[in-house]
């Protein structure tokens, strides 16, 4: 009786390859990991003490002091604000450390008419950043900006959006508004290991309340 040894070996090897390949596929291609904890209220902080100022008047609005710190009680954010300008190429500068947020000096001061822009990192290559939980904010949540003169401005979230950086709505985010608003920006969405960057931005829209 003739046994076709090479054919049998090939058949077995093929089956092993199928099993191994399938196992590899299943083991490594798990579903996209949940990037941020969704536990809202974790590490919640009290609202800052001190007087909260009224929104600006349309008529002869008074100049306001520069922003000093940002508190978002629900997601445990309490950070000093550094100042940011534009980088070469016209994109926004970002803080050099991930533990602090910054206010873009080309935008209105928080609590004056227009959209004040505050930017922070979601993470570094090793650790969480100041805006790690920014995308868990919901409509109606509060953010407080304390200014250099000790006054506090209270903002309420009106919208939370994720935009692909390739399709960033500059006008919606940075454009003029008739009331005092705030934009909090960080990274989000899928991470591209090839470039070392996230593909999207998270933008939180908020409006000053009385």
């Amino acid at each position: 009786m003739q046994i076709r040894r090479p054919a049998a070996i090939a058949f077995a090897a093929g089956l092993i390859a199928i099993a191994g390949g399938t196992a590899g596929l299943l083991l490594t291609h798990h579903s996209t990991p949940a990037l941020r904890p969704v536990a809202a209220g974790v590490g919640a902080l009290p609202a800052p003490a001190g007087p909260i100022v009224a929104p600006p008047q349309s008529a002869e609005p008074a100049p306001v002091a520069a922003p000093a710190s940002l508190t978002i009680p629900l997601i445990g954010v309490k950070t000093n604000l550094i100042t940011l300008g534009l980088a070469a190429g016209g994109a926004m500068q970002v803080p050099s450390t991930v533990s602090v947020a910054g206010w873009y000096t080309g935008s209105p001061r928080p609590g004056s008419i227009g959209s004040a822009i505050i930017v922070g990192h979601v993470d570094s290559a090793q650790a969480r950043g100041v805006f790690f939980r920014l995308n868990t904010l919901k409509v109606g949540d509060d953010a407080f900006v304390k200014r250099a003169d000790g006054t506090t401005v209270e903002f309420r979230v009106t919208k939370v959006q994720e935009y692909l950086k390739d399709d960033f709505p500059t006008q919606d985010v940075y454009g003029p508004t008739p009331d005092a608003e705030l934009r909090l920006i960080t990274c989000g969405g899928a991470f591209d290991p090839a470039t070392g960057h996230y593909l999207s931005n998270i933008v939180v829209y908020a409006t000053q309340v009385k």
Binding site: G106, G114, I117, G129
Partner: peptide, 25 residues
């Protein structure tokens, strides 16, 4: 003088680079 609207005098170009993937999984 009524301020009808105000925006960034010099709007930045595009989005911002605010993450390095340490928590991306």
């Amino acid at each position: 003088n009524l301020v009808d609207a105000a925006g960034a005098g010099k709007p930045p170009a595009g989005g911002v680079t605010t993450g390095f993937g340490g928590t991306a999984g």
